[in-house]
Design a protein around this nucleic acid. Structure first.
Lengths: 125, 125
DNA sequence: TAGATTCTCCTACACATGTAGGAGGTCGCC
DNA sequence: GGCGACCTCCTACATGTGTAGGAGAATCTA
């Protein structure tokens, strides 16, 4: 059970914990934009499922409410998402790059930054 | 119903059509690696569902078998996948780039290629 | 301390996805 | 012209995901 798959809503729950730290179910629920905020018990169900997946855990109790914190890190979750996507492309990053460029979502500055990062990591080898 | 959501298995069906052109259900099924090849009717069900989503269509009939061809292009499907992923990252491509570099899935050649492509598209503007 | 509030835990349900079997139609061949 | 192979279409079912209600326990407040 290393990297369990997290659904979209599960990721939003985790996002709340990643940005705000340990939270109660109520606080997680309130982290959603008011317009499309799920019911309290909906958030609770997802939290329970994430707990079963060991993506988060109960850390303490305040009053009668449990406080939950992330077990899986944001970068680990993101890595899994990216790797899964790449898997669908036969493991090649190139189609991804092409799309990002064509849709203007990748700037020259991003590329330069990536280039620099790559040079640095190559130097370390 | 512009870009319907395609599941993983649905994408594999589409992949067969994208690489081989119009195919029968049998041919699509045989496009799967023999070790993890779904049952004929499994492929058929997915084809029917893709048809309902207008992702592919029947083009003709050979004997009593229908021949199917892609309606959604590979690049359109890939774009949707990438955009959806990016949406989970708040629309920023940078975490994606970082991960690709750290995991060694982005080579210097890829970067140079991207840089050249970006220069070209900038020139056209 | 009793009522209001808030939580927990359990249960339910609809839709999507992956998987496949069975009934019956159609074809090609002997 | 009949038979086996192959195809279509319908149906079913388990699991995952999003959604939420209800019963009852714990806590707060007047």
């Amino acid at each position: 059970m290393p990297q369990p798959k997290l659904s979209k809503l599960e990721l939003k729950i985790m996002a709340a914990l990643w940005t705000k730290g340990a939270l109660s179910v109520r606080e997680i629920q309130e982290h959603f934009p008011a317009r499309r905020r799920p019911a309290y018990t909906t958030v609770q169900t997802m939290v329970y499922r994430l707990e079963a997946k060991n993506a988060l855990r109960r850390t303490k109790k305040i009053g009668n409410a449990h406080i939950f914190d992330a077990v899986i890190s944001q970068s680990a979750a993101q890595s899994k998402l990216i790797d899964d996507l790449l898997g669908l492309f036969g493991g090649r990053a190139q189609p991804l790059m092409s799309h990002l460029i064509e849709s203007g979502q990748l700037t020259l500055a991003d590329i330069e930054e990536a280039r620099a990062a790559l040079r640095d990591s190559a130097k370390k080898e």
